[in-house]
Design a protein around this nucleic acid. Structure first.
Lengths: 201, 201, 201, 201
DNA sequence: TATGAATGAGACTTCATTCAT
DNA sequence: GATGAATGAAGTCTCATTCAT
């Protein structure tokens, strides 16, 4: 690897590091309650240097969404590639989603509390599915394979999509709010069964 | 009605007016992008006077959530009181929810974009279901009546709750984002069928 | 005068006060070396309040130019209204210009060091003669009356304009730079004679 | 030429290249709106290296003025050395000045918009005529030769100086502002005639 | 020489809230 | 109750300059 390529790689590494910290802070405190100096401080770098990597707070937030979406999509892809029934895949999807929400809550929270909420920030490059395309694609694959195998009804994609993400996201949100009576894991069976019932052929 | 009560009534009337405008602005521009002077200007009143009615921006936001929740709950209550099957009630619920989202989008958007998003604002009086209790209660009634009549499975409340609100909220959000291929009304059947399938006995 | 009109007047008074201070500071230290907090401090008011009167530093600079141009134009107008020869008027013009430059140097310096120099600031509303129109108009009157009376050659306005303002502005600038060997007043005769010779019939 | 001298020459070459680019950028965008990184980028070199040639932005600006003044002085010198009447020399001076302003506007603009405007930058080495001495000298020569030949009045140098530079600079400025009604060349005759009239014996 | 990441002080601007009238 | 000028802390972003490589 040439000197040039090495530097480029180091730069990407640093950007990733910034994205990770920003994701956590944004998700925890909210977009407008997280300041650039705070992010810089947490990273042990200066504000000025932070701006050498991302031209604005908004751009940083967009990059975070893009990257976080990729991380989540990876897990989903692994599930899609397994050789099991769609019913089982849905169960695994719920387990995986809950597990992310417990171990890396910033990924889900970033989506729920930053991306879904502060739409104005994501104008200009992140509208609609633009920055979460990878996750959407995996859900799409899950659904179309299920239909192909005759296990799922052939229905409108968007309806199916919200019938999966809605309940999962909802229960994770309620868990974050502390209103659930039992630990999140307890809801794996009931939520995945409801999703399955909603979609099955 | 005495002079005292009359004044009290006028005051309540004015507060309601403020809440309505604040709900719309908060829902449209987001909590942090709406300033108190803007709200005052939209109302044709001074900032100082605005503070005579609400002690802080946060308190205003909480009151908005409480009031908006009441408005939505009213519609749901009407549905609950109808004498039809649970399946039909679910359909009516979806229709009603979509209709609110189209005619008074600020009610739903306030929930999605302000309440769900800026949790820090609602600390101290609006945690969990505290400010949306009326809506939650109506969903509870819908579910328990359905179970009573043997039309719905007897399952965990929270799971059932997100199986209803998740898909409805999700599709409305996507509609707001402009990613749906067809008008919102088109999704009434598919969404309500999915919800019904998820919950039915 | 009604309460409303009174307040309006007070507000205009305050704006004028701000303009005066800003003119002096901008002219002395330069546009980019004068900060809004400095202006506010000099005025004994808060930055925030300063922004209640002018929406941005640029707008403030434009308003200063407009106002300062008016002040200078007033003096020129008085000269134009006198009943003397054009030669004498030119002499008075030079005297008046020098006198302003000595007693209220910020007026001339603002023009020389802020307006002529930082063109980017005055884009959007102050291009060309837009903010100094009053001064230009008075020069125009001086010239056309002189031509009418047969005392001045009938020549291109722009050429005549720079033949007046160029030497006057130049000598005042050099005086500010401290390179002149004698006090400014000493140059009244020579400068006005040169201008007269340049323009006379 | 020894290795040492060669290196020295290369270094001077590079400095000149930097000065040219800096002159253009400063003149176009203004001193405070041109950043050192921008200059470096335009030159295809790194900021760090730029600082190997000039110790600070201010020093660079001063060197630019010195160099640009030399370039302009060269043209004037050629005129001074011609064997024509002073009247003709003044005409040639105007033509030359206008021509520079059209073909290399950065030279004149640098003077008008950077040097005249941002006096604080040129403190410490460039006060008064210190960095434009060469141009001043040529004007001086033009004037004293004219007096010697009996073609010009023997008058105060500073007055004569501004009677030449003022109108020329003024019309070029107006041209840059886009307020002139005709192309710059059109003003050669009228401006040089006015200057001549102002100075002639 | 050459690179460009890193620094950090400081600029402009915003806005929830107060308070004299 | 009603007004809106006033406050000042805090936020985003810039940029001349340095320094390890």
């Amino acid at each position: 690897m040439g000197r040039r390529a090495l530097k480029e790689k180091e730069r990407e590494e640093k950007k990733l590091q910034i994205v990770r910290v920003a994701c956590r802070l944004f998700a925890t405190r909210g977009y407008y309650n997280t300041t650039m100096p705070e992010i810089a401080k947490e990273l042990g770098m200066s504000v000025g240097n932070l701006y050498n990597y991302f031209p604005s707070k908004e751009e940083l937030a967009k990059e975070v969404m893009l990257t976080a979406s990729g991380w989540v999509a990876e897990r989903l892809k692994a599930i899609n590639e397994e050789n099991t029934s769609t019913r089982e895949k849905i169960r695994k999807l719920v387990i995986s989603f809950f597990s992310i929400s417990l171990k890396e809550p910033e990924l889900i929270d970033y989506f729920l509390r930053v991306f879904l909420a502060n739409r104005e920030v994501f104008k200009g490059g992140c509208e609609g599915f633009a920055c979460v395309g990878e996750v959407v694609t995996e859900i799409m694959v899950l659904l179309s394979k299920g239909v192909e195998k005759g296990e799922l009804r052939n229905q409108d994609f968007f309806t199916a999509f919200v019938s999966i993400m809605g309940p999962m996201g909802g229960i994770v949100f309620l868990n974050g709010e502390g209103v659930l009576e039992k630990p999140l894991e307890h809801y794996v069976d009931s939520v995945s069964e409801n999703i399955w019932n909603a979609l099955k052929a």
